[in-house]
Computed example of a mutant assay.
Amino acid sequence: MQPEYRARVSMKNPVHFCALGFGSGLIPLMPGTFGSLAAIPLILLLAPLGDSIFLTATLVSCIVGIWFCGRTASDMGVHDHGSIVWDEVAGMLLTFMFVPITVWTVLLGFVLFRIFDILKPWPIGPVDKTVHGGLGIMLDDILAGLMSFACLQGGIYWFPVLLK
Rank of each mutant, 00 (worst) to 15 (best):
F96P: 06
I43Y: 07
Y157F: 15
V78K: 12
A7V: 04
G125K: 11
A19E: 00
D75I: 10
L162Y: 00
A39M: 10
I40P: 01
S148G: 10
A90S: 14
A90Q: 03
L44K: 08
T72N: 07
S10I: 08
F34V: 06
Q153K: 15
V85N: 00
L93I: 11
G155F: 05
D75C: 14
K129T: 12
F68A: 05
M30T: 08
G25E: 03
Q153V: 13
A38I: 00
T58D: 03
S36Q: 00
T105W: 08
F68R: 07
K12L: 15
L107N: 09
S61D: 10
D87W: 00
D141I: 02
T105F: 08
D128N: 13
P41V: 04
G145I: 08
S83L: 05
P14D: 02
L59K: 07
G154A: 15
L42Q: 05
T33V: 02
F54I: 06
D80E: 06
G35T: 02
L143I: 13
T56K: 09
Q2F: 11
Q2P: 11
F68Y: 11
S24M: 08
H16N: 14
V89N: 01
I156D: 00
P126N: 07
V103K: 13
I84G: 03
M97Y: 06
H132G: 12
P121T: 07
K129M: 13
T33H: 01
G25H: 01
V89M: 00
I43Q: 07
L42F: 12
L162H: 03
I63F: 04
I53Y: 06
L146K: 12
A7R: 12
E4K: 14
F22T: 04
I156S: 00
L59G: 08
V89I: 05
Y5N: 12
G77K: 03
P100G: 02
F116S: 09
M97F: 07
P3G: 08
F159G: 04
V127C: 09
A73P: 11
P121Y: 06
K164Y: 13
I124H: 01
Q2N: 14
L108Q: 11
V9S: 03
I101H: 07
L29Q: 13
L135P: 03
F96K: 07
A90W: 05
F159L: 12
N13V: 00
F113I: 09
V131Y: 03
F34C: 07
D80R: 06
P3M: 11
S148A: 15
I63D: 01
I156L: 01
D128Y: 10
P31G: 05
S74Y: 13
A144P: 07
G35C: 02
H79F: 14
A38W: 01
G82I: 02
